[in-house]
Every structure is written in C-alpha cells, then in structure tokens.
Computed example of a mutant assay.
Amino acid sequence: MQRTNAHVIVLGNEKGGSGKSTTAIHLAVHLLYEGYRVATIDADSRQQTFTAYVRNRRDWAAAHGLTVPHPTHFHLPQTRSDSADENARLEFEMFRQAVAEVEGEVDYLIIDTPGFDTHLSRIAHSLADTLITPLNDSLIDLAVLAKTDPESGKLIELSHYARLVQRARRERMAIDGRTIDWVLVRNRISMLNSRNTRLVQAGLESISQRVGCRVADGIAERVIFRSLFPIGMTVFDPLDEAMLGGMPTMSHIGARHEYRQLVDALHLGLQPQSPRAESSKKTDRETEAVPV
C-alpha cells in the first residue's frame, strides 16, 4: 500500500484501556484548532471507541449550537463473512479507500488501531510517520512491549508487538528510506516513588535503548476524561459552562497542560496555518468506508 502525502500518526498498542482513542481525538482536535486539515480513521471495527467519541462530539455540538472543529472521519464497519480471509480482504479494501480519499487532501491522518494483532493493524503501522504507544504506568502494560527482569527491570526479551513494530520500521526503511518515530507515552504515572514506578522506568529505558524509540510523559489519571467522552469534547475546546455543560475545574486545566506538553514531545513540526474556522468547515463530516 502506498504512502500518503499527509503526516500519518498511528495509535498502536496490543492492550485495551491504555488511552489510544482518547489521545487520538485530542490530537485531532488540537491540530484542527491550529488550522491544519485533519482526517481520522477508526481501524477497530469491533469496539469503534474512536468513532463513538467523534459521534458524541457532533451530536453534542449540534444539540447545543456549538461551533467546534471536526475531523473528516472514517470508520470501518465490522465485516460479516464466514471466511476470515474474506473479512481481512474486505477490511483492507475499506481501509485503502479511506486513505485514498484523503491522500494529498489533508495535513495529518490519525489512525486508531485495535488492541490486538490484525493484518489491517500491521498495514496501518507500516504507514506511520509517528507511532504513539500509550502505556499505563504498570508492569502489566510494560509486558505488552517486553519481558523484563522482575528485580532490575532490565530487558530480557521483546514482545510480539515490539517485534511487529520493528518489522514495520524495516519495511518502511526499505520502501522510502525513512523510519517510524516510535514514541512510548507513559499515562497515569504515579507520584509515589514506588518499586513499580522504578521498575517501569528502568524497563522503558532498556526497551528504548534496544529498539531506538523515545519515551514521553502522558496524561495523569483524571476523572474529567470520563465526563468528556459522553459529550465528545476535549480539553482543547473552550473551557466554559456552555461547552462543558458545567463549570470547568482545575482538572480540565491540568489535563490541557499535560496534553500540550505531549504534543510538544511528539515533535510534529507544527507551523502557523490558515484560520481555524475555515479548517473546521472543510473537515466537518464522517464517512463509513464501503468496500468495492
């Protein structure tokens, strides 16, 4: 599958509950507010959490007369064939059509992948310019990347997912001579200097040195995200009572600061763009990718 002209950001992790979809929608909305043209693809045809977030955003904005930016969004309906090979073929064709429709038309393409290994997820990883792997700050999540020594945190063996990313990087290098900037994002970091925290830190350092990826601090455990999902809003939207359905709190402000720090750590090379309102008008639609 050929690369697009857009900068492709892939959210990948073979574990659910790590914050992929929440990070995906926040990145999309932030880039829209900065004036960029943004398309998004939910490649998880089973859960479709990313798609639910986008729909909640559109519904809440329409119901309350809010003017907020929306990405051009594609979701892949779950295939129903009795043949696994046929399902994979249909999903790939839908995905290919979605990418082809926005190729050369947007500045950023953000792809949220399922929390398990699929052929489509591997293709999405191979397209990435930036690969973001969110991880809760625990040894359970660390095991998604590698087996580490329980006493020192040193790397013993890379996981299936880490090897998958390594293969995707090699394939990408062979195709266009470029690599994938892989960023491990630590979410829910404990403020306590616990043994778990130290082992996770040591493990991430060993993994990053072994595979050549970067580590960035992510988002703390905040109740605010549970209240933002049902209305589809993000911490980058105006924090007022009309937008949120209630008064903003310090949790809103703290979360927005953390996400801005994460955006900076991703090194996306953001530059001043066209006015925000114009960007919003051009990207306000959702599409179901349909196989030919």
Rank of each mutant, 00 (worst) to 15 (best):
M1G: 11
V54P: 08
L27F: 10
I25E: 00
Q166P: 00
V106F: 01
E86H: 10
P230S: 05
Q201I: 09
V292M: 05
D44L: 00
S208F: 14
R167K: 14
I132P: 06
Y53E: 05
N136C: 06
G65N: 06
P275A: 13
G203V: 06
S45E: 05
R3M: 15
M191R: 13
V102P: 02
Q261G: 08
W182P: 04
I123R: 02
L11Q: 15
G35R: 11
M233H: 15
H30C: 10
T4H: 10
I25T: 01
L139W: 14
N13H: 15
N5G: 13
K15Y: 06
D237Y: 03
S280V: 08
N13K: 00
Q261A: 07
L66E: 09
D129C: 00
G269L: 11
W182D: 12
Q47R: 02
F116R: 09
S190R: 04
S18Y: 03
A84T: 04
A39T: 05
P238M: 06
S159D: 10
H64E: 07
S81E: 10
S159Y: 08
R55K: 14
R80Y: 14
E86K: 10
M233Y: 04
Y53D: 14
G245S: 04
D129N: 01
P77Q: 03
N196P: 08
S251N: 06
L76Y: 12
K154V: 07
E101S: 07
V144Q: 09
T249Q: 01
G16F: 08
H257W: 01
S152R: 10
N193M: 13
V185N: 10
M243S: 11
R186P: 06
T130R: 12
A98R: 00
H30D: 12
D240H: 12
G16N: 11
V292S: 09
V263W: 03
T79F: 11
H252E: 09
S251F: 07
Y161M: 14
G218L: 11
L270M: 05
D149G: 00
I180E: 01
F74A: 02
G115H: 05
Q271R: 15
R260Y: 10
G177H: 00
L184H: 04
A43H: 05
A174W: 13
P248K: 07
T130I: 12
M243Y: 11
A52T: 13
P248M: 12
R214N: 08
V54L: 06
T49R: 02
L127Y: 11
S159K: 11
E14T: 02
V235Q: 07
A63T: 03
T67K: 14
R172M: 04
V183G: 06
F95Y: 00
R210E: 13
L270G: 00
Y36N: 10
R210K: 14
V183I: 03
S194T: 07
K281S: 14
T113D: 02
T234S: 00
R186F: 03
T4D: 02
V106A: 02
F229G: 13
H119M: 08
D181M: 12
L135D: 08
H7L: 10
I207W: 02
D42T: 09
V211Q: 12
R256D: 03
V200F: 04
